[in-house]
């Protein structure tokens, strides 16, 4: 052939840079909120992972000192009305909050994504039914919905951490579904989805191979933001007494339990409250920064 294209190896100079290089580049250009939030999160995660090994007392041991003794070197945050060490309880509670938040929002995002993308791909009556249902759920205020679910689960399961995870997932899922559907509708328009359909691929295969990778930018951002909201919801549930059951050192629950002591020994209430606040602020800053990075890289590729 006279029009043969001769391609030699030096044309590959612009070959893709490695993932590690790309990651380094992203971190170097990351926004300030991402770095500060990341630092706060690092401290929290460090406490959550290692805390149980160096906490001075067990979270449930009573009479480690006199009740309500205030701040001291033995008891950094004082003791509660049962003489439990508040510092140890706060440390022990860290991993509980983080695990509950992440697993709850992950489950919610996973459920919502699956349903939303399926809705976007199938359209028709399935889409109509799913969307009306989702709209009904969204119209219920999220706290009311959460309390309804806890009550519906009955006393047998109330106080179980698993129930809290399920409640968080269920509250988040409808909102994620709408978002995933919108992202999916954008992708479905593309010819590669039509090609996959013409190939006779099943709906799940199309969603997994064609829709999910292209909607993942939006969905990761959503996951990050939801993980930021989750501690608020879990803390609120705990405070209202619908979260995990009492001996657990969950921070919202602790605030609720100690709220009468705010005058007698303020540090007892302030410690879990400040921890919860710093976690929420850290998570929010970090996820917002992450969302910006992901949003930028999504835009960059287009």
């Amino acid at each position: 052939m006279s029009t043969e294209i001769q391609i030699n190896s030096d044309q590959l100079e612009d070959a893709p840079i490695s993932r590690f290089e790309a990651l380094k580049r992203v971190l170097r250009q990351s926004p300030m909120s991402f770095r500060i939030g990341g630092a706060i999160m690092f401290v929290h995660v460090f406490i959550a992972i290692t805390g149980p090994f160096w906490a001075p007392y067990d979270q449930a041991t009573i009479f480690t000192g006199p009740p309500l003794m205030g701040m001291s070197w033995e008891h950094l945050f004082g003791t509660d009305m049962l003489g439990r060490d508040v510092f140890s309880r706060v440390i022990h509670g860290a991993h509980l909050v983080i695990i509950l938040s992440i697993s709850g929002s992950f489950l919610g995002v996973a459920l919502g994504t699956a349903l939303g993308l399926l809705s976007a791909y199938l359209r028709g009556w399935f889409d109509e039914v799913v969307m009306r249902l989702i709209e009904t759920l969204i119209s219920i205020p999220y706290l009311v919905l959460a309390l309804l679910l806890v009550t519906a689960a009955g006393p047998k399961y109330s106080g179980e951490p698993t129930l809290v995870v399920l409640v968080v997932a269920f509250v988040f899922a409808p909102r994620v579904t709408r978002l995933a559907r919108a992202a999916g509708l954008d992708v479905v328009m593309n010819d590669y989805v039509t090609i996959a359909r013409l190939r006779g691929e099943s709906a799940w295969s199309v969603i997994w191979r064609e829709l999910l990778p292209n909607a993942s930018g939006t969905l990761l951002v959503e996951f990050a933001l939801r993980t930021g909201y989750a501690p608020v919801l879990i803390g609120t549930l705990g405070f209202l007494g619908f979260g995990v059951a009492p001996p657990n050192p969950e921070w919202g629950l602790m605030i609720s339990e100690y709220r009468d002591l705010v005058l007698a020994s303020p540090v007892v209430v302030l410690a879990p409250a400040l921890m919860l606040a710093s976690l929420i602020i850290g998570l929010n800053m970090w996820t917002e920064g992450l969302a910006r990075i992901l949003g930028r890289s999504v835009r960059h590729e287009e």
């Binding site: 593309n190 590669y192 190939r199 006779g200 191979r209 064609e210 990778p213 993942s216």
Partner: peptide, 29 residues
Amino acid sequence: IQYIFQNPDSSLNPRARVRGALGRPLAKF
């Protein structure tokens, strides 16, 4: 029966490597 679309920007999945785009019909058919 195979289809080739007008706009190659839209007919290739931007998140799949060339390997993936060509491998799928082979695996499927």
